[in-house]
Design a protein around this nucleic acid. Sequence first.
DNA 1: GAATGTGAAGGTTTTCACAGCA
DNA 2: TGCTGTGAAAACCTTCACATTC
Lengths: 220, 220
Amino acid sequence: MISESSKRRISESTIHRLSLYYRLLSVLEKESKETVSSKELAEREKLTPAQVRKDLSFFGSFGTRGLGYPVSELKRRIGEILGLDRQWSVALIGVGNIGSALVGYKEFQRQGFNIKLIFDNDQRKIGSNHKGIVVADIKNLEKELRENKIEIVVIAVPATVAQYIVDDVVKAGIKAILNFAPVNLKVPEDVFLRNENMSMELEYLSFALVNLFNGRGTNR
Amino acid sequence: MISESSKRRISESTIHRLSLYYRLLSVLEKESKETVSSKELAEREKLTPAQVRKDLSFFGSFGTRGLGYPVSELKRRIGEILGLDRQWSVALIGVGNIGSALVGYKEFQRQGFNIKLIFDNDQRKIGSNHKGIVVADIKNLEKELRENKIEIVVIAVPATVAQYIVDDVVKAGIKAILNFAPVNLKVPEDVFLRNENMSMELEYLSFALVNLFNGRGTNR
DNA sequence: GAATGTGAAGGTTTTCACAGCA
DNA sequence: TGCTGTGAAAACCTTCACATTC
């Protein structure tokens, strides 16, 4: 939808903020708000109005001077940019502690991320049912990923085996991987890999408590 | 431990990278590696050697010219900086989908984050046992948080009620909060609030697949 | 010789400030 | 008048390059 690839590189932070705007616009839409200003968006996300306008301006002019942005329309456009205007076929590997939580995580479905397959290597788990999905044997990973046209793989296996798993995932032709294992995975250049490190923010808090406690908090 | 508050502000990214270094150093320590160079650290984290050296230099000179950094010692020092050289008393609020996963998340304990209390408002859950902890009634939140000297609160309740909960948490004098609810929470300036948004990275992948697919991946 | 520690340079991101439009 | 869209300025972060030390 967006053809700005030649213009200027869009920063990771901008994309992350688009996620925030999208979520906020969904709320505003439910509240039947028709328009919203960069000032209001900024206040609710603890950003500056200029930041909001810059972010949006990378992708086009969505607003009306003097008025602001049309809520539903802007939400729709950001949805397009983020690829949330379509359904994604997702496979989950590892249905332990974290994996189980992800299967039931409503936000994923809401945004079009549909977990179609679940894999594990534990015989006790294989064949069991998680929210209507039967856990498959990791042995059939490559075949199943291809046959089911999976587009995104979520890895929630122990750190020790994550690299072997990811190697197989790459072999199956997957180009987008979300990794929850606390380890650095190597993937070829043409594969998008993102890491979800759940300890990181907790560590930031602990750092903040120990070091920056001058009576002032910090958000993001 | 660190008294650099006057020098230069340390960026959020630097702190996040310290988390990565810490994790990597733990691995190297287990492998009985004695020293490590900024070059090697950088390669394994996909950063530049200069970045690694700059990050560390904010906190002191930990290395030896010509040799590199002593693995165990550096790990210990970063642990101190991040506040991982001590135990933290953590309370979890909401033992649903995500909450349950966090109770069993080994990484937290390993880093000294001990979940001491669990709260919920669901009568069916109150009194039940999660990994040895009996779920308490959210009604007694303030009293329990104070009596148990809780330092960090993790919020894993539905978005609709998260603000009410966080207000009570703040009233109880808590200064550090990790929020998993997909909503922007308001807290006073002197409270540290961090958000863990599990959809964000998935949305980044979806953005990448739709927009940046010029055959090149991106990691972080 | 090898690798740190660090000012200075370079690059990127954010904020400012204002022209332009409803 | 109010608020967007955007060049320019400012702030911030990363990389370079080299003096310094082991």
